[in-house]
Design a protein around this nucleic acid. Sequence first.
DNA 1: TCAATAGTGTCTGTTAGACATTATGGA
DNA 2: TCCATAATGTCTAACAGACACTATTGA
Lengths: 231, 231
Amino acid sequence: MRERLPPASRVARSAVVSLDIVLCAPRGRQLAVLLVRAGAGARERWMLPWTAATPDAPLDENAARTALAAAGARVPWLAQVGAFADARRHPGGAAYSVGYVGVTPRRDIAPPANAEWFPLADLPPLAPRHRAIVDAAAAALRERMGSAPVAFHLLPPVFTLTELQEVYELLLGRRLHKASFRRALQAAYLVEPTDEWRSEGRGRPAQLFRFAPRKRRGSRRGVRFDQIGNN
Amino acid sequence: MRERLPPASRVARSAVVSLDIVLCAPRGRQLAVLLVRAGAGARERWMLPWTAATPDAPLDENAARTALAAAGARVPWLAQVGAFADARRHPGGAAYSVGYVGVTPRRDIAPPANAEWFPLADLPPLAPRHRAIVDAAAAALRERMGSAPVAFHLLPPVFTLTELQEVYELLLGRRLHKASFRRALQAAYLVEPTDEWRSEGRGRPAQLFRFAPRKRRGSRRGVRFDQIGNN
DNA sequence: TCAATAGTGTCTGTTAGACATTATGGA
DNA sequence: TCCATAATGTCTAACAGACACTATTGA
């Protein structure tokens, strides 16, 4: 089930194009990113999981393999962030790098021995290019959240609406109104209730839902100029 | 003012990474894309303007140079679309390609002899990778339209509100309501009126406006699940 | 019983979309 | 004068956000 790939540290430093994965998972009220150890003891460094690209293979396949090898499990959602070059500041010396961002429910992932989850907001020092890829990945994640059901890939198959809301708050970086969130969710026909309930600590148990999108009559109202103004 | 670059056809076929530009301009009610001729007579082909990437130079600089050389004028807005690989289907045989999308007001651009504008919806046959880059560029343009004032780079410095609305309709691919469009525009403090008016044919002359964004109090209401549902 | 969380009903301010009306020029 | 386009005012339905309330569990 688990693919074998050469560890990143043994890939030739002359690799022309690298694939670098920013793998995210929820961790309490923060997003966590998976990093792998490069160096040990006083010279300990961290870097994004990466491999040299295999020519002639689709980039997405290459990236999926890299993510699988790094995480030890299939990554349910993976998207390209972009290409990076500027200076030679990749830990493996790659002239070009293609960044990918992925998400996974945390429970699926017990990281390999040389890997560890770090809070996105508090990463250890990274090579400049990896730092740029992480920043671009976080931005891409927030952007694409509205056009793809990314949030559901951060959750197990069944979840409470509070859990779903917490993931949205995580990705959006702001608190949401409970009643409004549920109304919008209902109007979008994205989830359906199961007949299970889960009790956590005190309080009334929460009903469990599953992701079950249905065809929708397009609404698409208006033009929002909200974010226009920079650049 | 105009940079000299080797024409794409003379770049070695072994180039590892290419930069490929999808340059867009308004053309009536459609978007036009700039293509360059590759081959002649019965063997005539068209391709996106591209060059081999210069190692160690920032990709954005590389792309700006490529666009400048292809269009013969500075391109006011240029953004990366992503990296492409799959099979060896680049016209120059590049193993990897980084796509860029740019926009320019049409009047600025008199294309060089071997280049021509084509309607985006009706392009001649392209190499598979170029076709993929064009499609991704069109999607990226629509996506980023909401977060950057792309529309204004498709217009001359002063314009009528009807012209601005037509550009938005072009980019969004749907008609907008005139009164709503103007209200949203006013609320966004993006344009300011000049004291010029322009009369075109019959009807009342239109006031000319210029792009002049001002600081805005963030509104950012609610969560829209509008586009969620496809992966 | 109290504390804590889930879930729902109602009200209000905002706004997209539609319609109507006025304004101003050319034919 | 009639027609075409610009620009604006008003009404309505939809909806985000807030508040309050009920429901259901554990302590």
